[in-house]
Design a protein around this nucleic acid. Structure first.
Length: 570
RNA sequence: CGGGACGUAGCGCAGCUUGGUAGCGCACCUCGCUUGGGACGAGGGGGUCGCAGGUUCAAAUCCUGUCGUCCCGACCA
């Protein structure tokens, strides 16, 4: 491709409406163009990157025994009503009516459709297991799209679904997919960590996410991991053992139950300060509304509620902190002095976080304004459930070493769905005994556009993108410094044609611009290698520069062609 | 949806306080000159100032409403 013909316009400045570095660079380097919030055109350079990532995914999925198909992007409400998700999915599911008034939606995922595709087609145990995948646009009407391609509303996803007759078979395919994913991301030049996660709206029991660890702020997930063993998990799923600590209030003068005045002291911090007691000796009450039902969470004062865990514990679809008015309505007391004491448990659900276990002589709200109790103890030991956020330094649940935390971008995930969809949708096969059984399913996703963006988050510098060569839009940029110089142009064209002929993906920067412009663009766009044909051609040399390291070699034109062949062709 | 900010040319911005009929840099077009790190000179094209009302002799500027975009939170590939 000649640069003068390539559909690309680089910008001198970063766009104002971008925050994440991948977003800024993708716009500035001419890869994407926004149409509206969270919705982008993929320009020719981006299209090539998407094609590269997709090709790697296809090769590895096919090698792993999966088969590609394509399912409809526009779907009728029927299948969603069958699975029960028409009600549950919420506003993220973009819905509309067709001209006949039929309820339709844009596909955010394909569990329902794949289940209906397989159901009635693969009806014998002899035909199973099977794994089917597609690479396709998805639409999720995100509450807040952001960070460009990292969280668009419209995005490209590879989604795969497997169907089994036994848990054992699912386990084996799950592992097969985990291995395939590791190969896919490795081939994309990305180091990923496979972490345990919550299964969220997709459902099911076991699930893992593949994270690109970033340490920058744009990683949207906190990942807790252990350096001593293999344990790692998304913060929405991570567990920990609390560091052994003194949680007996009697050491701080709270040895018997007593009602005390705590005027205008609302936060745990203020209370701890007022009573000269560590916050870990206070039992904090946090009030939530889960699907319009009140839930009061009791948690150790120095810990925070993890809302995804709480959502699961409450068996709810949606959860939010309650307002002060709601606290007065349900508990008869303003926020700041709440407690589980004297709460009507037929109206308000109580959840005790496991961090409260072992607390003695603790401080707690009195459910009366401006009053707390000190020296409280559980009368009956409640059931403790884990609904708290892990903190760095707490102990690994496997090996009891301190956990570390880092930020990560989720580029893929794998789920064991079980019969979550096949049962309600009545999707069955006939087993050896002639009995109908629901399929046992798994599903496996990769964000294709997000993977590309994650690669930029991970690999860039002050000059621009530093693509891993496997997913770069082109491999080599041939730059004649002065297009008016006949010799330079001739040699550049010769190198370009030779590379083109042997299948190296190459561009020739034949624009009549100064060298600086071409060098800047080359680095911004992120071509892995640049061949500069300039004044050194007088001595018979061109320059070969590696984007990643900045290393420059002086080579003859024929040497440089050989070098590229060696580096880029197998 | 809650909290904050911003909408002026393709991009980045000024002008708004104190109303007088729109400007700068980049990009784009033409010519010249230049060619190893985003040159220079001359000329040129492009904007219903997000939209709709209102105030006024006069609105980018003041008022009201509305739409959109971005940032912080809950959701997720």
């Amino acid at each position: 491709m000649k640069m003068s013909k390539l559909f690309v316009q680089t910008l001198r400045e970063f766009p104002n409406d971008a925050e994440a570095i991948s977003h800024k660079l993708l716009v500035r380097a001419g890869y994407i163009k926004k149409l509206t919030s969270g919705i982008y055109s993929y320009l020719p350079l981006m299209q090539r990157v998407i094609a590269k990532v997709s090709k790697i995914i296809r090769e590895e999925m096919n090698a792993a025994g999966a088969q590609e198909l394509t399912m409809p992007f526009v779907q009728p409400s029927e299948v969603w009503e069958k699975s029960g998700r028409w009600e549950v999915y919420g506003k993220e599911l973009a819905r509309f009516n067709d001209r006949h008034g039929n309820k339709m939606c844009l596909a955010p995922t394909h569990e329902e459709v794949i289940t209906s595709v397989v159901s009635g087609t693969f009806t014998s145990y002899k035909q199973l297991p099977i794994n089917l995948y597609q690479i396709q646009t998805k639409f999720r009407d995100e509450i807040r799209p952001r960070f460009g391609l990292l969280r668009g509303r419209e995005f490209i996803m590879k989604d795969a679904y497997s169907f089994h007759t036994s848990q054992k078979s699912l386990d084996s395919e799950y592992e097969n997919m985990a291995q395939a994913y590791k190969r896919i991301f490795a081939r994309c030049g990305l180091e990923t960590k496979m972490v345990q996660s919550d299964s969220g709206a997709i459902g099911g029991s076991v699930s893992h996410e593949f994270m690109v660890l970033t340490s920058t702020q744009t990683g949207e997930n906190d990942v807790f991991y252990c350096e001593n063993c293999e344990y790692s998990a998304n913060s929405n799923h991570a567990e920990s053992l609390l560091v052994q600590a003194d949680v007996d209030g009697s050491q701080y003068g709270c040895n018997k139950k007593e009602l005390i005045d705590t005027p205008n002291i609302k936060t745990i911090e203020e209370l701890a300060d007022f009573l000269k007691i560590p916050s870990r000796c206070i039992l904090k009450s946090v009030f939530y509304i889960a699907d319009s039902k009140p839930v009061l969470v009791m948690i150790r004062g120095d810990k925070e509620v993890e809302e995804t865990k709480l959502l699961n514990a409450a068996g709810a679809i949606e959860i939010r902190p309650a307002t002060n008015d709601e606290a007065i309505e349900y508990l008869g007391c303003e926020v700041g002095y709440l407690s589980y004491l004297n709460v009507d448990t037929t109206k308000v659900k109580l959840i005790f976080d496991k961090s409260a276990k072992g607390m003695k002589n603790f401080v707690i709200g009195a459910n009366m304004p401006h009053k707390h109790y000190i020296g409280c103890n559980f009368e009956k030991t409640p059931e403790f459930i884990d609904v708290s956020l892990v903190k760095e330094g707490e102990l690994c649940p496997c090996c009891k070493k301190p956990l570390k935390v880092t930020r990560g971008i989720e580029v893929g995930n794998i789920f064991q769905l079980g019969t979550k969809y096949s049962k309600p949708m009545n999707a069955t096969y006939t087993d050896e005994n002639g009995e109908d059984k629901p399929f046992i399913m798994g599903c496996y996703g990769i964000g294709v556009t997000r993977t590309a963006a994650a690669a930029i988050e991970r690999y860039h510098d002050d000059f621009g993108i530093v693509w891993p060569k496997e997913i770069a839009p082109y491999h080599v940029d041939v730059v004649p410094v002065n297009t008016d110089d006949k010799e330079q142009m001739e040699i550049a064209l010769k190198i370009y044609n030779e590379l083109l002929n042997v299948g190296v993906e190459v561009v020739l920067d034949d624009r009549d611009d100064r060298a600086g412009v071409k060098f800047k663009d080359s680095e911004l766009i992120g071509f892995p290698y640049r061949i500069t044909v300039g004044k050194t051609i007088k001595e018979g040399f061109v320059e070969f520069k590696e984007r990643k390291t900045g290393n420059v070699e002086k080579l003859t034109p024929s040497e440089v062609v050989e070098k590229c062949k060696k580096l880029l062709l197998n």
